[in-house]
Computed example of a mutant assay.
Amino acid sequence: MTAKRNWSNFAVSLLALFMVIAVWQVFYSPNIPVEIPRYTKSAYTLYTNTSNYVYPIDSLTEIDYNQLIDLNFTFQMNNLVCNETSPLVLVMVHTSPKNFAKRRTIRETWGRYRDKVKLLFVVGDVENSTLKRKLIEENQNYSDFTQGSFKDTYRNLTYKHVMLFKYVIYHCPEARYIMKTDDDVFVNMPTMMNFLTQELSPFGAGNLLFCNSRANSRVLRSYRSKWRVSFSEYPAKNYPTYCPGWFLLYSQNVVFNLYKEAQKSKYFWIDDIHLTGTLVKKLNLVHEDSKPYMISQDELNDVVDGGNITRPFLIGQPNLSEKQIRSLWNYVDSHSVSKNIIQ
């Protein structure tokens, strides 16, 4: 009887302890935001035959083409690279006007891939007359710029990104996928094309936002940071889940929905946060994580040192040097193309 009574007392004490812990967690634990998945499986859909998706331009305002959020807008340089063709993917590379060497590196490496691919460099306007003249000459040589009438500055990154959407909607509606990268990024284009046509679909997809997603990022308040955001600009402590903008893969309908929402939303200058965080959350879209398809820093170092990568990959690390991009292209160009990415 004594042993039975002791066991009963122990069970009651244990239950009481669990209740105390539960109450403490509710009322006294730190207010740490937790990212709760909205879906247990992928939210995008793959088309199984020729897509009949058409950008619903009629739902936009009559002045939309010459409006960029809160600016009057024109394309100052605009190459119609799609020209009524049907590229599988349109690649739009954000580049600083002065980054001549980085653009040359892309043109001579992964940007050379032209089978069902179109590529454009996205820039804003510049005040320096010498730089302006050099950009015009570069565009005359390569015909691969699209330039907006806003100044090319950090604070105008959202204008730059939304202009990208505008170009796609009005000037390349045939592209099944839209890829946005920075000019210090490597894309394994031969394997990427297999990924798009075999693991995804050559006919396109719906509700796709494929990126290196990031959750629970703190808003930077330090005056030493170029990414400092004031409380009046963004009062919350943390940003919503978003995509760092160095690599993004969009489906057509995601491009249009984000564009339409951005055109009528209050301007926020960090494009990654605003477009792929705040507006994605508002539209209840879902990020598909590209991290498994990115090479690690160790794998990157191995390639630069002449070694091998033992698994297929789609993208390199962000913020690559020109030497690293060329090393990765030399590796890709001298090895067989991976037929399957999803293992």
Rank of each mutant, 00 (worst) to 15 (best):
A3E: 11
A3S: 13
A3Y: 10
N6A: 15
W7T: 10
N9F: 12
V12K: 14
L17Q: 04
M19L: 12
A22W: 13
W24H: 08
W24R: 11
Q25K: 07
V34K: 13
I36V: 15
P37D: 05
R38E: 12
A43Q: 07
S51W: 01
D58T: 10
D58A: 09
T61R: 07
T61W: 04
D64Q: 13
Q67P: 05
D70F: 05
N78H: 15
N78I: 14
L80G: 03
C82Q: 05
E84F: 12
P87S: 06
M92D: 01
S96G: 06
N99W: 04
A101P: 00
A101C: 03
R103E: 01
R103D: 00
T109M: 09
Y113G: 00
D115C: 04
V122D: 00
V123K: 01
N128H: 08
T130M: 08
L131V: 07
K132E: 08
R133F: 07
I136P: 00
Y142R: 08
T146I: 15
Q147T: 13
K151V: 12
R155D: 07
R155H: 12
K160N: 10
K160M: 11
V162G: 04
M163Y: 02
F165N: 04
K166L: 05
H171C: 05
E174S: 15
A175Q: 02
A175S: 14
Y177C: 11
M179N: 03
T181E: 03
D182L: 07
F186H: 11
M189V: 11
P190H: 06
M193V: 11
L196N: 06
T197F: 04
G204E: 02
N207S: 14
N207F: 05
L208K: 06
F210S: 01
C211L: 07
S213I: 10
R214T: 12
R214I: 10
L220S: 11
L220K: 13
R221M: 09
S225V: 02
R228W: 02
R228A: 15
S230L: 13
E233R: 08
K237W: 10
K237M: 11
T241D: 04
W246V: 04
F247W: 06
L249V: 10
L249G: 01
S251F: 03
S251D: 01
N253E: 14
F256V: 01
S265C: 07
T276Y: 15
T276M: 09
K282P: 02
V286N: 11
S290Y: 04
Y293H: 09
I295E: 00
S296C: 09
Q297E: 15
D298S: 10
E299P: 03
L300F: 02
N301E: 14
D302C: 09
N308G: 00
T310M: 08
T310R: 15
R311S: 04
L320C: 03
S321N: 09
E322A: 07
L328F: 14
W329R: 06
K339E: 15
I342T: 11
Q343V: 11
Q343W: 09
